[in-house]
Amino acid sequence: MTTTEEDARAESAESSLTARKHSIANHTFAGISTGAASLILVTLAAVATFLLIEAWPAIMNSGGEVHDRVDWIDAERGESLVEIIGFLIFGTLLISAIALAIAAPLSTGVALFISHFAPRKLAAGLGYLIDLLAAIPSVVYGLWGAIVVIPVLQPLFSWLGQNLGWIPLFAPDPATGTVSSTGRVALSAGIVLAIMILPIITAVKREVFLQTPLLHQEAALAMGATRWEMIQMAVFPFGRPGMIGATMLGLGRALGETMAVYMILSPGLSYSLAVLQAGQHNTIAANIALKFPETNSSGVSALIAMGLALFLITLLVNMTARWVVSRRAAFSGAN
């Protein structure tokens, strides 16, 4: 045997060893990442199963036992679980819609300022501050809303009720002729929710706007566009799917937000659009938090049925967002 042959053999043995090592590492990594991904699915399935199983007695008995045993369903006044869930879904959607109506345009403005208008140093600091806003726990927002914001908003609400009361949204209470004297109304909850979801929407939009290809922007500017026209021509079309995604992310948080609504709103059940009257609206999540501590087993089942409804709404919102994003992707100019 020559030395070269020996060397070659040793080399080939070594390389096959490293190849095996690589393949082990590859497999392990692939396994871990597949496991992590399927864990999400398993968790989702587990939550859905839990909701279904626990809510089943309430869903099946919605005419009988549940109504007798649950104190907060007043069957004699003609209430039923389905009806209550209907009111709550309306309240949830209404308050989330208010939050979104305020937060969506505002976040676009803030994100654009950071990505395209502010000097670099200021932009970095501002971006950091907005991320910080997202880190404030919702219970703190709730306390702040209930103790600080509401007393400030109430005089404004009174003015709205007196001067714009003919708009159904701002209609005062027909019995007293005034709006809520405490400000614990859907509009307050919506405003505080808007502040809560602002950071996450802004953060995502800012990232999206920063991704706009420089060439598109420069091309627009070279055509003689002003900065605002450039943003309309280059940044928005490119960022639209991301903007929708960001908004939906915020909507998801608004739909499920519990503590802030729980602390700010005087709850009630109705399909009223009057967002300045107390005791008209409540959200599913806040209602669950409110009723859970003192309710019996049938009540828990009924509350979980509400949770199931919220789960379905959130799922629907996310799927719609996906669908919108995928439909728009083709025209976004990103490709």
């Binding site: 809520s180 004297s181 405490t182 614990r184 005087s266 009630g268 107390a278 005791g279 409110l290």
Partner: peptide
């Protein structure tokens, strides 16, 4: 029992 007035948790 009724939906009048304000309420707090």
């Amino acid at each position: 029992p009724n939906d009048l007035g304000e309420s707090g948790p």
